[in-house]
């Protein structure tokens, strides 16, 4: 029994190892072409700009773990970021209030999505496809097609993305928030019953129901959590770019889903880890940051990005296959 447990750990460990190797090769290649890549400044820029994707990928992982999907996140982010931005414009609220407001709005939007998926039994992709349109439309409407411009934000809000007070003076606030999120998720997903329930719902719904888990609550929970993180993302986004625009974060859902699947999260539910998601998001961030640095022609960047995603997921499958085979062989012996 103990031995079997050990094997499983090894497998999850090495599945992620294959991605780590790909990443190292990618980084080395970029570093050789442009030595300014692996400098603290470039890396800080990268983590700062992609903090939102890193954070959203965590929520997306939970949604995917339950066998669902959420493609409305870009619109949810825009709506909550815009709503909080408008309130700040008109009432000059303090920064923490603005963040809380944005997160609350996001959670509310996510709750609606979760309710309709579980209570209305609408397939997740259809429901979130609909809400992608609805929330985007509403974003334009509440803003009356205006943007919230830099001078309309308070200084403390604009400085949030520049200062380091949440990171104890060591790392930028944006990065600090990302790190905290990852620590919380790592602990919760690995060592608490909440985390185990999410996995249980995704890997075997019937078994989970029999064992007394309220499937509906878990599902509503993950979509609300996703919405909450979108709200956080919306506040971070507006703070980072010092501007709230109706069309912000359009298409971010594809990047976030790509980050998850590259990180080994299964779209059929039940499989995926926080470490994997981190590596997946890192891959997306490196592609976005490094390709302009090594002078890859503008026009080739999407093609390369698509190719890397495909190669990464196929490598993942191949690694899994060899491991399964080794596993079988060991069992035979």
């Amino acid at each position: 029994m103990e031995k079997k447990k050990f094997d499983w750990k090894k497998i999850t460990g090495s599945r992620e190892m294959s991605l780590v190797i790909v990443l190292i090769v990618l980084c080395l290649f970029v570093q050789i072409r442009n030595s300014s890549f692996l400098t603290s400044e470039t890396l800080e820029d990268m983590f700062r700009n992609y903090a939102v994707i890193f954070i959203l990928a965590l929520g997306m992982m939970c949604v995917l773990l339950t066998g669902g999907i959420d493609i409305s996140i870009g619109s949810t982010l825009a709506f909550s970021g815009m709503a909080a931005g408008l309130v700040m414009r008109d009432y000059m609220i303090p920064t923490p209030v603005s963040f809380l407001l944005s997160m609350a709005i996001g959670a509310g939007l996510g709750l609606v999505v979760g309710m309709i998926i579980t209570k209305g039994k609408v397939p997740p992709i259809v429901c979130t496809l609909g809400f992608m349109n609805i929330y985007r439309g509403l974003t334009y409407l509440i803003a009356k097609s205006q943007w919230v411009a830099a001078y309309q934000f308070t200084d403390s809000f604009k400085n949030f993305a520049l200062t380091k007070y949440l990171g104890f003076g060591l790392v930028n606030n944006m990065i600090a928030v990302t790190i905290y999120c990852y620590i919380i998720f790592f602990v919760v997903m690995k060592w608490t019953t909440i985390g185990r329930r999410v996995y249980a719902v995704g890997s075997n719904v019937e078994a989970a129901a029999v064992s007394g888990i309220n499937i509906g609550h878990v599902k509503i929970g993950v979509y609300t959590l996703m919405g909450f993180l979108c709200g956080l993302g919306g506040a971070l986004w507006t703070s980072l770019y010092k501007s709230a625009q109706g069309d912000m974060a359009t298409g971010i859902e594809m990047d976030v889903i790509a980050a998850c699947v590259v990180g080994g999260v299964s779209l059929t539910g039940g499989r995926g880890s926080v470490v994997g998601v981190f590596l997946g998001s890192l891959t997306i961030a490196i592609i976005g940051k490094a390709l302009p640095l090594i002078g890859v022609s503008q026009f080739w960047q999407s093609a390369i990005k698509g190719l890397i995603i495909l190669v990464a997921v196929i490598l993942n499958v191949l690694a899994q296959r060899t491991m399964d085979k080794n596993n079988l062989r060991r069992r035979e012996m």
Partner: peptide
């Protein structure tokens, strides 16, 4: 796009 423009500006400064 905001994010892409930011990335491109940072790349210009680094390069």
């Amino acid at each position: 796009e905001y994010q892409k423009s930011v990335d491109q500006t940072q790349a210009l400064l680094t390069n």
